[in-house]
Design a protein around this nucleic acid. Structure first.
Lengths: 196, 196
DNA sequence: TCGAGATCGTACCGATCGGTTCGATCTCTG
DNA sequence: CAGAGATCGAACCGATCGGTACGATCTCGA
């Protein structure tokens, strides 16, 4: 019973439970692919409760995208951290983590990019842009610590590779995209560090 | 008067006119962002005519995506061809053509990727996959003629860069994405040809 | 000139959508 | 025990959606 009925038990827990349960459903079916009524039914919550916590369907969508962006970025940063201080190892770890994600049967591409492609609302586009900013910060940090000649350029190149790999994996080659992108990233890293 | 009323005048011309007029509208607003009624009003055609030619809204969408995929691939191939036999010039030409596209105020990312993110219908996903196949053939051809050690690998890496640049341009950095991807592509090309 | 066929404009259909409302029910606190 | 507040479930609302039907109009070939 993830969402109890009491009053003062957990004003906040209900919201978190809704968010957690709604995320995979909206990701799998698409933002417009599932109505609020069905969503509530599958979550096990009434429409009134959902609307009291999020005000609107877009409010729920924004909250879940924001949470997902933070979560996936942290996950990727953790993956890089497992490689210790080795820059090449960190880059390889990022793409190997992505490879695992691409192989997941529920993988449907980047949730933020999908959302931005569907919902032309400004708030969603802003969340997507912020998400790419988070990725860029992470990748630029790796490039800096690797001693790249131009870490900002390498960071942006890595961002293109990460996003490109995700797109290609989602729509063309789930098995190979991460490996090809990783090889490219390591080549770019070598070129960027050989020059200094 | 793009859509005359007569009977035997042009059974096929009407269909082409609908397709041409509907494409930019569906691209700008999204497949689900504009209803059939409004679409017909803006095209200047009746719903009956549209449905007789395409059967269903999905039919229209599929026809327009297929046409757009062929058209944009041909456009990119032409851009590469302007660089003559120089492989580096061909790669650079591809990304500079993309840069011009990204700068277009109506640029909204890749129409096929957007469509696949919205419409979870199998036919749309198939068209998107075929589209990436077209891109891959084009890029692998360039890699082969450049004498890359592993042209299939380089082709797939270039595909990741092209798609990644398009995504980043659409959602984060319209001005810089193409340039960064081009630099990365030329670095990969150098590495792939230096080895042999 | 006449009829076949393409098109128009509009009305219409059933379904679904996001969102609201309300009475009943439950749980905790005072 | 009493009441405040959160939740439920179901009904309800207006809008919009994709798709169909129909009579009127137009253009062509025979």
């Amino acid at each position: 019973m993830p969402v109890p009925k009491g009053s003062t038990i957990d004003p906040e827990r209900t919201r978190a439970a809704i968010l957690e349960a709604a995320t995979p459903i909206l990701y799998e079916r698409g933002l417009d692919g599932v109505g609020v009524a069905e969503l509530c039914a599958r979550i096990g919550v009434s429409k009134e409760t959902l609307y009291r916590h999020f005000g609107t369907k877009d409010g729920l969508v924004a909250a879940m995208l924001e949470a997902r962006s933070e979560r996936v970025t942290r996950w990727l940063a953790d993956a890089a951290a497992t490689a210790g201080d080795d820059p090449r190892g960190q880059v390889a770890a990022v793409f190997e983590a992505l490879e695992g994600w691409y192989g997941d049967p529920v993988f449907r591409g980047c949730a933020m990019l999908n959302a931005a492609a569907q919902h032309h609302v400004e708030t969603v586009r802003a969340i997507t842009a912020r998400h790419l900013d988070r990725y860029l910060r992470l990748l630029t940090g790796i490039a800096e610590r690797a001693g790249a000649a131009d870490p900002h350029l390498l960071g942006r190149q890595l961002l293109v590779l990460v996003e490109g790999a995700t797109v290609v994996a989602a729509h063309h080659d789930p098995a190979g995209a991460a490996g090809h992108a990783r090889d490219a990233a390591l080549t770019l890293l070598s070129a960027a560090t050989r020059a200094d």
